[in-house]
Computed example of a mutant assay.
Amino acid sequence: MAAPQNPRGPRPAGVTVGRVGLYGFLAISAAFFLLPAYVMVVTSLKSMDEIRLGAIFAWPAHFDLSAWLTAWSGACTGLTCNGIGVGFWNSVKITVLSVAFSVIIGAINGYALSFWRPAGAKIVFGLLMLGAFLPFQIFIYPLVRGFAAIGIADSLAGIVLVHVLFGLPLVTLLFRNYYAAIPVELFKAARVDGAGFWRIFLEVILPMSTPMVVVASIFQTTGIWNDFLFGLVFAGRDNLPMTVQLNNIVNTTTGERFYNVNMAATMLAAAVPLVIYFVSGRWFVRGIAAGAVKG
């Protein structure tokens, strides 16, 4: 019995070669990014005696989790040796507060600029976007002097305010573009029914904003969690985030350098953004697609 023929005809050779090339490129790209992560993981699971052998790609002969425990609660960050765990909880406080305030304010800004459009709305939006393109380093000294004058220098309030201010341009742009795709008839119908600014926002607009809330939260969480400069300048000694603590662990040179502890501390510092991306990836793609319209 003859084999059934492909109704579309034989596949062109160029298509097959192109697909092989595409998969080859993807495989090389994945290896390029995954190989350093593999080296970090296996190094963190080795003892220092095994690391000194120099076989950085070799699988650990014996799994040793002591480096992870030391990185969390015993690694030295200068004169203190309480690990990176303190910085973790500081980063949690800073990130949760900063993300909550920036997303809420950004959603309100995007809502106002999309539907209410007060006088000078285009100028305000243009200034916000200008703030997104200016190097934030030029604002550090004026902010330090200003925060010192009002009494919030080296405090949790100061570092949270900095992240909120510098996150507003991006968050406002995301919500404004997202709301531009919502039919304006919904807004007009609510206005006819007598709803005001806050009632329309809370009962009509905000319930439809879940995908963009997730996207904005992911962007903000990643940026704030990975921040080093703002945390170093504005957080103060009692609120140093995890990235600053990681830098202190890696650069503390009192005797032997423990590479397994350094790798474990680095993985712990990167764990939260990775988990967020894996857990909320579907919402992230949906929100990006929904907000990819011209505002």
Rank of each mutant, 00 (worst) to 15 (best):
G85D: 11
G106N: 07
T172M: 03
M40H: 05
G18M: 14
A132W: 10
L268W: 06
T172H: 03
A271R: 06
A148R: 08
G281T: 08
F25A: 15
W283F: 08
G18L: 14
R52I: 09
N177L: 01
C81W: 07
V244K: 01
F125D: 13
N239E: 01
L246M: 04
S217E: 12
L173P: 00
P241T: 11
L128P: 03
W59D: 07
V99D: 03
C76D: 07
L240G: 03
V39F: 11
I159H: 03
G167H: 04
Y141A: 13
V261K: 02
V214A: 14
H163F: 11
T252M: 01
R237H: 06
H62Q: 14
G85T: 14
A55F: 07
M129V: 12
V184Y: 12
V162M: 04
A67P: 00
F25H: 03
A189V: 09
F166H: 02
R19A: 14
G167D: 07
I288C: 00
A180P: 00
W198K: 02
R199F: 08
G158A: 01
P142Q: 10
F57V: 12
G151L: 08
K122Y: 03
I205D: 10
V233D: 01
F219E: 02
V244E: 00
T222A: 12
N226R: 06
A157K: 10
V214E: 05
Q137A: 13
I56L: 15
V160I: 13
L130H: 03
S98V: 10
M129C: 14
G194L: 10
L128W: 05
N226M: 05
R176P: 01
E256F: 14
F278A: 15
G167I: 09
V124S: 13
F197C: 05
T172I: 04
V41N: 03
S217W: 13
S217A: 14
Y179A: 04
L170Y: 06
P118H: 11
T43A: 03
T43Q: 01
E203H: 15
E50R: 13
I218N: 00
L173V: 02
G87D: 12
D193K: 08
V162T: 12
G106Q: 11
A180D: 05
Q5Y: 09
A37N: 09
T253S: 11
A264M: 00
G9F: 12
D193F: 08
P36W: 13
S44G: 01
S29P: 02
P118Q: 15
L134R: 00
D49E: 12
F139Q: 09
L206H: 07
A27M: 07
S155G: 01
T70A: 12
V99L: 04
A71N: 03
